[in-house]
């Protein structure tokens, strides 16, 4: 009834589900398969450490994925490994977000001024360090077992989570900063200053909620990367330690038995890693497209 002259940037704050491309659909299927394995698998599969009496049995009726060199059911191992890899990836991304989002918010809020400069310099330094090489170095120095830092004991799993998180901080911080730079142009940021809302509360209470969607889309995408990176570390023996399975260390054990004909032992965990990485990537891209479309409307 009443027409207004200024068009709002986004009339709704909900993410409307657009028509999804075939690529996004395939990604969704892959992702759901992986999640099914990682979430439901461990509940259904039985223990991943139990001995079944068959060494390196091929996939068949008795064992869906066959057995490994210590007679453990590979389906149970892979399911548990998928669960662990997923948890570690999410924890790593979570840790990265916890550090990166406040940094990005502060940098974006003070865009162009010294806090922004300082934070950007630190991010650049962090980004210059190739994460993977750094991870190899840290674990090479502190060893693969638990490390004692003052009163705190870091398990090997914790170290992997921290290393992954640290590696992701620059990327998450940049996305947050970009979104914040745009958001800060909105009048309400100044309006709330005039009302008397303290700066930190504007940043954390008002700006954050608007900036989160693109950041969370990024986080989702990077879970796939995290799974891949953790698998790579564990494959080299530097990540999750046995007997705790992870997709990477199962694969690492498996390569020694390729020559003995146990093809399923390597291919299956490798396939799961691939499915997870691709699934998260495609769905994340889809989410990102939906977000862009929503913003453009």
């Amino acid at each position: 009834m009443v027409m207004t002259r200024v068009l709002p940037r986004s009339r709704t704050s909900r993410l409307r589900v657009p028509r999804m491309s075939a690529l996004t659909w395939s990604g969704l299927v892959l992702l759901l398969l992986f999640l099914l394995l990682a979430v439901v698998g461990p509940l259904v599969a039985g223990t991943s450490t139990a001995r079944t009496g068959d060494t390196l049995a091929a996939p068949g009726a008795a064992h869906l994925f066959g057995t490994d060199h210590l007679q453990r059911d590979l389906f149970a191992r892979t399911a548990e490994g998928a669960r662990v890899s997923l948890l570690v990836a999410v924890a790593g991304v979570g840790f990265g977000l916890v550090v990166a989002v406040p940094a990005g918010l502060v940098a974006g809020y003070f865009g162009g001024r010294w806090p922004d400069d300082l934070i950007m310099r630190i991010l650049e330094a962090l980004q210059a360090l190739p994460l993977f090489v750094f991870a190899l170095f840290v674990i090479g120095v502190t060893g693969t077992g638990d490390s004692q830092i003052g009163p705190v004991t870091l398990t090997s799993t914790t170290k992997v989570v921290l290393l992954l998180g640290v590696g992701f901080i620059p990327y998450f911080a940049r996305v947050t900063r970009s979104a914040t730079l745009v958001e800060v142009q909105e009048d309400y940021v100044d309006a709330l200053r005039v009302v008397g809302v303290p700066r930190w509360r504007i940043i954390a209470g008002e700006i954050l909620v608007n900036v989160l969607p693109p950041v969370l889309v990024q986080a989702f995408l990077w879970i796939g990367v995290a799974i891949f990176a953790e698998s790579a570390l564990s494959f080299l023996g530097l990540g999750i330690q046995p007997p705790q399975p992870s997709l990477g260390n199962i694969l690492g054990d498996a390569t020694g038995y390729m020559l003995l004909g146990a093809w399923w032992y390597s291919i299956i965990p490798g396939l799961v890693i691939l499915v997870a990485t691709i699934g998260f990537n495609l769905v994340g891209d889809g989410l990102g497209d939906a977000l862009d479309a929503d913003n453009r409307r």
């Binding site: 200024v6 309006a191 709330l192 008002e206 909620v209």
Partner: peptide
């Protein structure tokens, strides 16, 4: 003194947080 003087600005959609 924030309580003494307040502001009403031009664009109401921008002046209010659209997510709140």
């Amino acid at each position: 003194d924030r309580r003494a003087i307040q502001l009403v600005s031009q664009n109401p959609w921008s002046a209010l947080n659209r997510r709140k």
